[in-house]
Design a protein around this nucleic acid. Sequence first.
DNA 1: CAATAACCGAGACGGTACGTCGAGTCTTATA
DNA 2: TATAAGACTCGACGTACCGTCTCGGTTATTG
Lengths: 206, 206, 206, 206
Amino acid sequence: MPEAVRTDDISPDEPARVGRPRDPRVDTAIAKATLELLVEDGYQATTIQAIARRAGVSAPSVYRRWSSKAELIEEAVFPSGLLAPEAITGDVITDLKPYCLQILEYLSDPAIRAAIPGLLVEYQNDHAMWQRGMERSVTPMRASFRDYIAKTGRDPVVDADQLFDVMLGALFTRALNEGAEGAEAFAHAVAKVITTTLDESKVGPS
Amino acid sequence: MPEAVRTDDISPDEPARVGRPRDPRVDTAIAKATLELLVEDGYQATTIQAIARRAGVSAPSVYRRWSSKAELIEEAVFPSGLLAPEAITGDVITDLKPYCLQILEYLSDPAIRAAIPGLLVEYQNDHAMWQRGMERSVTPMRASFRDYIAKTGRDPVVDADQLFDVMLGALFTRALNEGAEGAEAFAHAVAKVITTTLDESKVGPS
Amino acid sequence: MPEAVRTDDISPDEPARVGRPRDPRVDTAIAKATLELLVEDGYQATTIQAIARRAGVSAPSVYRRWSSKAELIEEAVFPSGLLAPEAITGDVITDLKPYCLQILEYLSDPAIRAAIPGLLVEYQNDHAMWQRGMERSVTPMRASFRDYIAKTGRDPVVDADQLFDVMLGALFTRALNEGAEGAEAFAHAVAKVITTTLDESKVGPS
Amino acid sequence: MPEAVRTDDISPDEPARVGRPRDPRVDTAIAKATLELLVEDGYQATTIQAIARRAGVSAPSVYRRWSSKAELIEEAVFPSGLLAPEAITGDVITDLKPYCLQILEYLSDPAIRAAIPGLLVEYQNDHAMWQRGMERSVTPMRASFRDYIAKTGRDPVVDADQLFDVMLGALFTRALNEGAEGAEAFAHAVAKVITTTLDESKVGPS
DNA sequence: CAATAACCGAGACGGTACGTCGAGTCTTATA
DNA sequence: TATAAGACTCGACGTACCGTCTCGGTTATTG
């Protein structure tokens, strides 16, 4: 049995070099069908068999690529890491509102709204997956927010991480329940609350 | 063949006066089994058949009482209206923190944490049910919060309803993700943020 | 506990004299519904629940009167003993054909045609019931046929009982499969076959 | 996504060329379990779930092959056409008795005895199935019997088809009720009756 | 150019949950 | 005390999705 010899440099996690390559059209068809079904019929009805059916693809072709429905949906809905927002770089008062609005609108995407509760259910049986998802999405956001607060030279009366949790939690719940309706006003309210709390803080010795 | 007409007094919403009455032990056994399964195995595994099995009850006995898994779980987890918190009646600074803590701890109940994402999924296919649930739980809370703010005589810089949404959204998300861990500190943070925003507001003409 | 005192003479197998008497309209409604359902929907669909439903009666009211679906149907379809044909009394050649026709038409009754295969299925699990049914219906017929043959003074080349089984089996199968269609011709054929066999027999010493 | 068109030779009635082929052991296990249950517990208790259970097979695997219990039992009990008797080819007197005996013994098979009343019940709701079954089993028998009578050169006093119905009806009823007990004697009786009727007939002009 | 290996669609596989229905039994209020 | 209504347990019904597997067949790389 000959070894699978690698003859040229390959990115280290390249899974296979011999055999028939995967048809990229299958990947896109699955992703497209997944998003469509999520939006049209909800998480419940977005079964793997239904996805395969709509994509014109066989069920094993789906399982070959993703080991579970949760992973498939996670990847289809958050293709390149959850949120990945641009860091806040400018003035605190003027920056926070567009930042909140950006998050709110992102989370209000119909596919994302449909996917999240379902993913939360799946996470109940797979804590590791939950952790992976959080570290991919929320953790970098939290870090960039913390850096931003530090750069303002303030010593907030409320810990920066918890302030972030208040902000994100409010936006998350709003997006889940109401979607993008009244996003502008709510983003303004959230930004105002956070800004007010920051203003209250004494400026540190910097 | 006797007549089925009843001429004497019956309480108006009396569901059944003839026939074998429902065994109340069946009701409690189902509710108990539902909560246990939710906590032990998560929402996914809390199937109606599994509930019936654990309750020592037949599946039709479950379907006789609830028309769907969502309704059953909703009623088992929120027996008499979601939350039903005590209204805030005292001083704003000292009251808000225990109020937040109360909400956070209530939502951190393992059965509730397990139930909520699943219910959100079901609500995708039954908007009326979502509305019913919200009106039973969140709406009265929002109203009592608004009244409380009004009684303080303040004219908040942020609309009272949206302030409430920020508060509840933050607590809701926290409870869902972290449960009761560090509840004390987070409740303090939320209360501080809300209080600060209220303090900023000018006192109205009373 | 006071005894149930009998104050007047009652036929000895009277089952109950105290308590609420049975409503005779229930009995007739059940019987009527049973026959209707048998003819309209077949044996399979003639469930006890369906009978109760159509009769406007509760299921226990049916079970109170009959211990099983088989007994109920047996009694509804064969109210006073199966067949109970008039004995053959006259001339062999002229009598046999109307006799066969009478049997064939009786078995061709839609309710009987529908009931018989179902009853045969039930008899598989209750041999005693089968025996009871046979003794109530076939046995007296066979006896009267045997007597009739004896009275003709013939010593048949085929045993009278088996000759009867040939005759009845042919008529029974015919009625089950074709019903009353072409009954006249088939009754003639059967009578002819039996008569010919009898004619072949030598006349005994009387 | 490769093309699914096949241009080269395929046997015309090949049912499936793609997909995992059926496990033939499943087929035989189902058939075996069906016959066993019929004999042991009767038609009533031979449910599809019980068959699947005994065969060590899932219920969907049964439904994949047969659309109803009736079809499954029909095929299990009459694998290749009902009866399929050898044609009568020799002398009328000597041939008829073994022919009758053969039919009687075939119908006395415990599985067949158990199956037939149940199938008759099912046929009440599916006349087409009854017709199919008759044409597969009785019709060819009747034809071969008619040919046989014609070959004897007789012009029977009773129509050949009705003579056949008398013969088969007698044997059928006997098998259903008594099974193989006393088969020898009854086959003799039936053969005698039919033979006598044929002897009575004038020999035709050949 | 042949061998090899991973891909492809189709569909069978064992399992399990679904929600409904019929079978009988049991409990209650009523007559 | 028998009745009628209806809840009760049990289990079969037929369907759907789960995730796996086994095919025949295709498309690349490798020797």
